[in-house]
């Protein structure tokens, strides 16, 4: 895991991790400041139990976007700077090289998520709900599943496609993933070709909203679906398989 450790160190050294994460934290702090409220149907939502799941939706949305940003250029940059040649001469396989870089991306994203969760901790303390702090731990790891999916997918796409195309596909999958449940309902309401096409798209795209909803369930006291968690792990496994299958031609 030397390559992964090196890649993480570089991300920390280049401070991109902090910059993007701080933007997210700033949004969260602004969001949770005393003067600001969320209004739904014209009525303010102020209590912690209702706000926490809404915050998780925001954290999930921001972290997903961060995952694309943090993962898109890591592997192409290595090739651009010819660092890859230093790896080949040590007899390290492409699969291992790409996998370790992808793992580095995933861990960086989890770090960014961790920084975002500091905002959640502050918010919890501001609302004097110390008793709820422990819930942030399982919520963090459940949400990390979705973030890993986006990060691994972006890393994998960056091997197969040029930067812009990979970023675009990752962004579409990410958006379809966080709006999966909405699109699913929409698909149920429309029939014909559009409905069928949507069914196919939604079968391929992982349901990121479903994963985040499980984290929200911890706060609302609803049951957590083991199926969703295991399915998330299986998707990560499938993406991992992708690094064994797809190779970069330039190597």
């Amino acid at each position: 895991m030397i390559i992964a450790a090196h890649a993480i160190k570089e991300k920390i050294r280049r401070k991109e991790l902090y910059i993007v994460a701080m933007i997210g934290v700033l949004v969260l702090i602004l969001f949770s400041a005393d003067g600001s409220t969320i209004s739904i149907a014209g009525k303010p939502i102020t209590d912690y139990d209702n706000l926490a799941p809404i915050f998780l939706i925001m954290v999930n949305a921001i972290c997903g976007a961060l995952a694309i940003f943090l993962s898109l250029k890591t592997i192409p940059n290595e090739y651009e700077r010819k660092t890859s040649h230093l790896v080949w001469i040590r007899g390290i396989s492409q699969t291992r090289y790409h996998s370790e870089l992808a793992i580095a991306n995933g861990i960086s994203c989890m770090l960014a998520e961790g920084i975002m969760f500091i905002g959640m901790i502050l918010f919890t303390l501001m609302k004097h709900r110390q008793d709820q702090l422990w819930k942030l731990i399982p919520a963090y790891f459940i949400m990390a599943l979705g973030i890993w999916i986006v990060s691994l997918l972006t890393s994998l796409l960056s091997i197969i496609f040029p930067g812009m195309v990979a970023g675009l596909i990752a962004a579409i999958v990410y958006l379809a993933g966080i709006f999966h449940s909405v699109l699913e309902l929409f698909g149920n309401m429309v029939s014909g070709l559009v409905g069928k096409l949507l069914d196919i798209v939604l079968w391929i795209v992982p349901n990121l909203h479903e994963i985040q909803a499980q984290a929200g369930n911890i706060f609302t006291g609803s049951s957590i679906s083991i199926h969703v968690i295991v399915k998330g792990l299986f998707i990560i496994w499938l993406l991992g398989l992708g690094f064994m299958i797809f190779k970069k031609k330039e190597a």
Partner: peptide, 11 residues
């Protein structure tokens, strides 16, 4: 959004 009965000003 779920509310407690006393939370009459909220949604």
């Amino acid at each position: 959004v779920q509310t407690t009965p006393e939370d009459t000003d909220s949604a």
